[in-house]
Amino acid sequence: MDTNPGLYGLLAEFDSPQTLLQATRSAYEAGYRRMDAYAPFPIEGLPDALGFHRTRMPLLILIGGLVGAVSGFALQYYCAAVSYPINVGGRPLNSWPSWIPVTFELTVLIASLTAVFGLLALCGLPMPYHPLFHVPRFSRATRDAFFLCIESTDPRFNLPATKDFLAGLNPREITEVPQ
């Protein structure tokens, strides 16, 4: 294993989504794991090619929704049946059917807030600084260019060998990304 202080990784630029997908698959087969692919839009199969098969987002959002449902109902039960009970002609204080709309709204609200803030947290955003932003051509990753970055922390990373490997994938350009 080669340690490369001051180097974040090697960035290879590709022409099209298809070539990026193929390159990513080859890199995974070659044993590289600490890498990431960048594209202006989601490419089907690319996360799988990187070995990222499942995201925890659905579970997080489910938990958020359950918290919203339980706390929404509990809020109304506490307000209308415990803290400030009003006896209207002997009708039951726990008038749950009339509490469904607010319970539903709070379920959706908490689930959605969990979804958005969970997404940002799992992606580590906001991230004002990232080594890749040093690479001038990387600004095209949000427009029309497709990148694969093998990071220097990968156990198999070796500057000349990895560079040769990437060159064999037919990229448009290879850049060393400083830390």
């Binding site: 990431d36 996360p47 955003l125 990753a141």
Partner: peptide, 22 residues
């Protein structure tokens, strides 16, 4: 700091779909 990472896109698409379902 969005940079189009495939990891981010996967979570993003899932989140967007579930937000639509909500």
């Amino acid at each position: 700091g969005w940079r189009g990472s495939a990891y981010h896109w996967k979570r993003y698409e899932m989140t967007y779909l579930i937000l639509a379902a909500l």
